[in-house]
Structure formats: structure tokens, C-alpha cells
């Protein structure tokens, strides 16, 4: 554990909590892609199956359980409790275009051809593209509320900090997880455009972030 990894995990947690509280307090999930949230719940589910097979640390177990609970609670708010506010018209990204290639790739490129390992690989690849329905939705509607932008900022920070973590681990312990690093770089690239918009519009501008 190093400072980059710990801050990355904390930013990830903050992002998830920001989104959950935003929906809970406003009693509305307007502007939020339910599809992205389902994909994230699927990411956590397929990645954390090792909760049942191996124990790493109390920190590891607690964080996994918290991420899972929050992910499913958010999905529950969007599709059940506040489903009237869910904008399915704008959330029109075709997730099969992500799921099929990601599933195929996880069978082809993995560390071991075992069910758990393939599902872990699937979760890594899927996480790298899971935010696309949300970014697509913002592009389509042309704006995002600032709180949604804060959510995306913390998700992006989490990614960037994980990259720093991997650089640090490579230098200090020679650790290099090729699948996670390559997918992580791809995932972080998706946030670059958003980072630019965030700093030029949300911080300087009014409450909302508009896209050109």
C-alpha cells in the first residue's frame, strides 16, 4: 500500500458516495446514466468473486463489500426508487457494443484460462469502458449538473492516482500487472477530455457544465 493507491481508493469511494447522495437527496437521477451504473455493479461483482476464495486483508475485504453495496444501492435508486426521474431516452448507449468485445477479449487475453481469472479480466476490461454511456449521455444532452461533474472528476482522479500507484510499484517492487495497467491507461484517457472541460467550465463557470 502506498499513498497513491490509498488516495486512489479514497477518491473512488468519494465518487461513488457523491453520486449516491446526489440521487438520494434530490430524489432524482436526472442526467445519470443507469447503464453506466449497471456496468459498474457488474464490474465489482465479477472482480470481487475472490471475496469467497481468498482473504487478503481487512481493508481489502471491507472496501470490496462497501463498493458492492453502494453500487447496487445506486442501481436500486435509479431503477426502482426514483425510476420516474430516470431519463432512458437520453441513456441510449448500446451497451452490447461494449459487453460483447470486452467478453471476447477477456477469453482471449487473460492470465489463466479459469472461470475466476476470466471474470476478473472481464471486470478490468469492462471498467475501462463502463463510463462511456455516462459520457455519451452528457454529450447527447449537452450538459451535466456540477455535482455530476464532481462525481466524474473523482472517478477520473481515482484512475490517475492508480496510474501513479503502478509507476511507484514498478519502481519500488518491480510489480507490473500488464492487463490492469494497459486497461487503466485506456480508461484514464477517456477522462482527459472531461478533465479539460471540468477545469475550464465547471470551476470558472456557472453551475452547469455545457459541452460544445
Amino acid at each position: 500500500m502506498n499513498i497513491f493507491r490509498l488516495s486512489g481508493d479514497v477518491c473512488h469511494l468519494i465518487a461513488i458516495i457523491i453520486l449516491f447522495l446526489k440521487i438520494w437527496r434530490s430524489k432524482s437521477c436526472a442526467g445519470i446514466s443507469g447503464k453506466s451504473q449497471v456496468l459498474f455493479a457488474l464490474v465489482f461483482t465479477t472482480r470481487y468473486l475472490d471475496l469467497f476464495t481468498s482473504y487478503i486483508s481487512a481493508y481489502n475485504t471491507v472496501m470490496k463489500v462497501v463498493y458492492l453495496l453502494l453500487a447496487y444501492s445506486t442501481v436500486g435508486l435509479i431503477f426502482f426508487r426514483f425510476r420516474n426521474s430516470y431519463d432512458s431516452e437520453s441513456d441510449s448507449f448500446r451497451v452490447e457494443f461494449l459487453l460483447v468485445p470486452v467478453a471476447g477479449l477477456s477469453f482471449l487475453e487473460n492470465y489463466a484460462f479459469t472461470p475466476l481469472e476470466i471474470l476478473w479480466t472481464f471486470s478490468i476490461y469492462l471498467e475501462s469502458v463502463a463510463i462511456l454511456p455516462q459520457l455519451f449521455m452528457i454529450t447527447k444532452t449537452g450538459e451535466a449538473e456540477s455535482i455530476t461533474a464532481h462525481y466524474l472528476l473523482f472517478l477520473g482522479l481515482y484512475r490517475a492516482l492508480y496510474l501513479a500507484n503502478w509507476l511507484w510499484r514498478f519502481h519500488t517492487e518491480g510489480f507490473y500487472d500488464q492487463i490492469a495497467v494497459v486497461s487503466g491507461v485506456v480508461q484514464t484517457i477517456f477522462y482527459c477530455d472531461f478533465f479539460y472541460l471540468y477545469f475550464t467550465r465547471v470551476l470558472r463557470g456557472s453551475g452547469k457544465m455545457s459541452l460544445p
Binding site: 472482480r47 481489502n60 470490496k64 481469472e117
Partner: peptide, 10 residues
């Protein structure tokens, strides 16, 4: 299966 890395990261 030996090349599989331990999954300590989240």
C-alpha cells in the same frame, strides 16, 4: 495458472 497475480488491488 502460476502466472496469475495476487489481486490485492481494488
Amino acid at each position: 495458472e502460476d502466472d496469475a497475480l495476487p489481486k490485492d488491488e481494488l
